[in-house]
């Protein structure tokens, strides 16, 4: 049996990946090592997605396999999980909009890319974003929205961040099916990402310039 967990995960071979993890755990392997291998596999998935070789189903399915691996490894973990070194990102679907698929994919990609993600969920009131920035000092905020009503909610959220005096030290990205450069301008955001990979790239760029 192949022992390459990273490759099995990257190639979306669920049964093989799960079998390798079980075998390793039975043989007393270090749980952190297994998670590191899985992390490398997820990096490959992300790279293939950004190259247009993988699509949303591949991304979501890799997440399902990773979830299974985590469930197997978790009971054996003694310390905490891997340290998050990528920086902090606050993310949520703006007030009035309850769509979560796009947001969840961005959260997932940020998470596997090493970011500490504060996911505020859907239909997030304006003040909750402001409070979370104050609490965590996160330099990056992602506002998600699928419906056109999100245009105004995004604008109101960004205005509130401005009024709270936090705009200067916060970079804001927006995303969603109906987001265009016009909407970036209208809402006062810094940028938009057309998919999760662009969201991660923006978060990386902003984490490094602070």
């Amino acid at each position: 049996m192949a022992k390459d967990l990273s490759k099995a995960l990257a190639d979306l071979k669920e049964d093989e990946a799960v079998a390798i993890v079980k075998e390793k755990l039975n043989a007393g392997a270090d749980p952190m090592g297994i998670l590191n291998d899985a992390g490398k596999g997820m990096e490959t998935v992300g790279a293939r997605f950004s190259k247009g070789e993988y699509f949303i189903p591949d991304l979501v399915y890799s997440g399902e396999i990773l979830k299974k691996i985590n469930e197997l490894v978790k009971p054996k973990l003694t310390g905490g999980g891997a340290a998050k070194t990528g920086g902090k990102v606050i993310i949520g679907t703006v007030a009035g909009d309850i769509h979560d698929i796009g947001k969840d994919i961005v959260v997932f990609m940020l998470d596997v890319s090493g970011f500490e993600v504060y996911d505020l969920g859907v239909d997030v009131p304006v003040q909750k974003f402001v409070d979370k920035i104050k609490e965590t000092g996160a330099p990056t905020v992602g506002l998600s929205g699928f419906l056109t009503l999100a245009y105004d909610s995004m604008k109101q959220t960004i205005d509130a961040i401005k009024s709270a005096g936090l705009r200067e030290k916060t970079k804001i990205m927006i995303g969603g099916g109906q987001i265009t450069p016009e909407i970036v301008k209208y809402t006062g955001a810094d940028a938009s990402g057309k998919d999760a990979i662009e969201g991660v790239a923006l978060a990386r760029k902003w984490a490094s310039v602070k």
Binding site: Y151, E182, Y186
Partner: peptide
């Protein structure tokens, strides 16, 4: 006909 333009244009 862009819904973004109809909304904010």
């Amino acid at each position: 006909m862009s819904i973004a333009t109809l909304s904010v244009g």
